[in-house]
């Protein structure tokens, strides 16, 4: 395998593992409120499913362009879904203690920023445009 291929795979798998971890942290931080647990639990399930789907799509790819396309599409999803935690965590409707809400918002912010930066790196490495 070429170096860009290996590096891209490593980046994408790392981001997906981190995204899953942060999503689980967000779900755990929301257990004090039934409404929050419902909302962020669903969001976590969606993040985990898309992250696993992305890992499955990128695994075994031998061609850099194809790997880049699958990686970028998966990374966009985690970049975007991080915004759900970030924007909803502090809503009074969910009734979360401020510390828990901060943890959830932070998890969302890290997911979005980390995925977004990796998007840029993967695009550079593979030569696949971000709008693929």
């Amino acid at each position: 395998m070429s170096e860009p291929l290996v590096t891209t795979l490593k980046y994408v798998r790392t981001v997906m593992v981190v995204s899953i971890g942060l999503a689980v942290v967000a779900a755990v931080a929301s257990v004090s409120s039934q409404r929050a647990l419902f909302a962020f639990g669903i969001t976590t399930v969606i993040v985990v499913l898309f992250a696993l789907l992305t890992v499955a799509r990128v695994s075994g790819r031998k061609e850099l362009k194809a790997l880049g396309e699958a990686s970028i599409q998966g990374l966009w999803v985690t970049t975007s879904l991080g915004l759900v935690y970030l924007t909803l965590a502090t809503a009074p409707y969910y009734g979360l203690p401020i510390a828990n809400a901060a943890v959830i918002a932070l998890a969302g912010a890290i997911t979005t920023i980390f995925s977004g930066l990796t998007l840029y790196r993967v695009s550079k490495l593979t030569g696949v445009m971000l709008s693929i």
């Binding site: 409404r35 969001t43 970049t79």
Partner: peptide, 25 residues
């Protein structure tokens, strides 16, 4: 089209999850 795509990629997944959660709330 590049601009339309990048912006849509960024917001669409979050938009649909947020609207669904807001609706149930």
């Amino acid at each position: 089209y590049r601009g339309l795509s990048v912006l849509s990629y960024f917001i669409v997944p979050a938009w649909f999850v947020i609207v669904t959660l807001a609706l149930t709330a």
